[in-house]
Design a protein around this nucleic acid. Structure first.
Length: 149
DNA sequence: GCCAACGTTGGC
DNA sequence: GCCAACGTTGGC
């Protein structure tokens, strides 16, 4: 799950009550569908820094609440406001995530790219712009290994 | 800051 | 339904 560290970083999550936060603001239909239909409570996810000086994986989160309507879309003051989404007919969804572990060191994007075992990883594919992408079990384990955990 | 890649918008 | 124009993402 991508996030720009300038907007919200893993230490912010670490300081959050219960180390838990809403993963709000997804405004892409493909990712919306994942949040609404596929991602389940108990699932694990990597916290990935995008658009950062040093992009890469910085830790592990778990989904503690599966997809429900993104209420930020209903608040005109919110940066993610979307007048076409209503409580009766919500357009956007979010999940709640909890920090499981912050890695001792970031696993850099350049390291992901350099690892042959990860060559087919979704997030590394050319032109990929989805803010949430699937990770296979093999990839998951390899990244844990790279993180030294 | 640049720019490739992709999604969305809106005229026709 | 097509497609040009525009906006966004995100690595570099």
């Amino acid at each position: 799950m991508k996030c720009e560290p300038k907007a919200y970083n893993i230490d912010d999550l670490s300081r959050a009550p219960d180390k838990t936060t809403h993963w709000e603001g997804v405004r892409n239909y493909q990712v919306r569908n994942m949040l609404r239909d596929e991602i389940k409570e108990g699932d694990r996810a990597f916290f990935y820094y995008s658009n950062a000086k040093e992009p890469g994986v910085v830790g592990i989160m778990k989904i503690v609440k599966s997809g429900y309507p993104d209420f930020c879309a209903w608040d005109p003051e919110n940066r993610y406001y979307d007048p076409d989404s209503t409580p009766e007919n919500p357009r956007w969804y979010m999940v709640d995530v909890q920090l499981v572990k912050k890695f001792d060191t970031i696993v850099l994007l350049s390291a992901l790219r350099a690892n042959p075992l990860l060559q087919n990883m979704w997030i590394l594919r050319k032109g990929n712009r989805l803010s949430i992408t699937p990770v296979t079990e093999t990839e998951w384990k390899e990244i844990l290994y790279m993180a030294g955990t």
